[in-house]
Amino acid sequence: MIILAIETSCDETSAAVVKNGKEILSNIVVSQMDIHSEFGGVVPEVASRHHVTSITKVIDKAINDAGIEKSDIDLVAVTKAPGLIGALLVGINAAKAFAFSNNIPIIGIDHIKGHIYANQIENDMKFPLITLVVSGGHTELVLMKEHNRFELLGCTQDDAVGEAYDKVARVLGLSYPGGPIVDKLAKEGIDSYNLPRPYLQKDKFDFSFSGLKSAVINLIHNSKQRNEEIRVNDVCRSFQESVTDVLVTKTISAAKKYGVKQVMIAGGVAANRGLRNKLNDNIGEFELIIPHVKYCTDNAAMIGVAAHYQYLDLRMYDKMDLNGRPFSELGRD
């Protein structure tokens, strides 16, 4: 089965051609990062406009680079949720137009499912497994006992991890997005500020990063009031140690509780070196799967792989009234 996948949920315009849920024949990603960084975050209407100007070219290039004809495509898959609604709708309507004009069925895919299935590209999932989904909009622990079936074990009660990084970077006067720069500076710093570890209930798998964010903000305010120098690298390191301690501890304890075969990470923050290293150091007997950085950030290849397994499981297409939604319902139904 050959799938043309389209992803426009945030600030990357992407199209990919995926064969049999494994082989990535092409994966074109046009990032708008430079455009949004000056605003300190993705500006929805700007994102939508850039998606509109890029999407057709990106789809054409994905098909050309894959070396296939339009008639070879069996299924069009598109991200339907969660994301910026205007941005999602650009991809959905491009997908519908392509599917309708070429008489190919269409299915809508949850973006989080895509992030999880990024792990199936270079590895093979072994069940049961748990995935820690960490990105600008998400912090979730998801249990899978078979393909395309998801149980939500816990999620953030306030800020997503990536969002906490962005906000901490903002108060430190660092650039957007906050994750990569904080990760980089953390490497040069030491964990010398005594920041809290927000575990909530130790036996539960929910997360909270808002209090930690406030602790960083207080620390900076207090230092300023006392005219003390703020050791930016140390703040980054202390913050990162707190975040990764909580993420890794919860992930490993969930892995033990559910007796999994694999532990996976997914989403943009899965590119964070501090998180990767700490998971690796604490993984014990579990097999740890970490996707290639290019499949951690938003891309259409992962949507194509997820679509393959969704279709194998449900054998269902969507209709032309397919719509975008800002929420994920993954594992919540």
Partner: peptide, 30 residues
Amino acid sequence: DLGAGKTTLTKGIALGLGVKRVVNSPTFTI
């Protein structure tokens, strides 16, 4: 400002409105 407690207050407002779901930050999706 950041960290003032805007989302925390909103969690309370949600409880007062009878919302059952977890109210978390709307920053990413507006």
